[in-house]
């Protein structure tokens, strides 16, 4: 075991875990940040998506040791005081069904819109294609990303 210093949602924390522990399990088991979900463990579903220096990554295949010097944002840190435009759009369009995949969807959408604030339909569909939703709430996710872009452009 070793001590790792992490910066999560603007706070510095240290954890004592094995170096090969995926960031996902550090967040969930050690830090009680359970909003980030486990779905596959092999970077195939997107449920575990978090931001590393504002870029969406799969925390299930990112070791804690490789996340040390980065700013990590999880769903809990996204709209701490007030919902961000993506979360607002999700709420407005009543997107979730079971809800399990939605934190990952929101994290992917947020980082995508930061890079491309004015996407067209195909760009949205491409960007979100890596995030599985077993309940198939895809129609609403697609609409919500477009709505979030609109909200961001007005803000």
């Amino acid at each position: 075991m070793a001590v790792f210093n992490l910066n999560i949602n603007g706070k510095n924390v240290s954890v004592d875990v094995d170096a090969d522990t995926p960031l996902l399990w550090v967040l969930r088991d050690e830090l009680n940040l359970v909003g980030t979900k486990y779905g596959c463990g092999i970077a195939s579903c997107g449920a575990c998506t978090v931001h590393l220096n504002n870029v969406a990554i799969r925390s299930c295949v990112t070791t804690v040791s490789s996340a040390e010097s980065a700013a990590i944002t999880t769903i809990e840190g996204l709209g701490e005081d007030k919902l961000n435009p993506v979360q607002e759009a999700w709420k407005e369009l009543d997107v979730p069904q079971c809800g399990y995949c939605q934190a990952g969807q929101i994290m992917t959408a947020t980082s995508f819109l930061n890079k491309n604030p004015n996407p067209n339909k195909d760009e949205i569909r491409n960007a979100m294609n890596g995030n599985l939703c077993r309940c198939a709430s895809y129609n609403r996710i697609e609409k919500a990303v477009a709505l979030a872009a609109e909200k961001m452009s007005k803000a």
Partner: peptide, 23 residues
């Protein structure tokens, strides 16, 4: 009339809700 999912805020802000989140 349309009513938004009652767990909406918890879902979109990542609050513990699911079995896997229980400890």
């Amino acid at each position: 009339k349309d009513a938004t999912n009652v767990d909406m805020d918890k879902i979109i802000t990542g609050k513990p809700l699911f079995g896997l989140d229980y400890k």
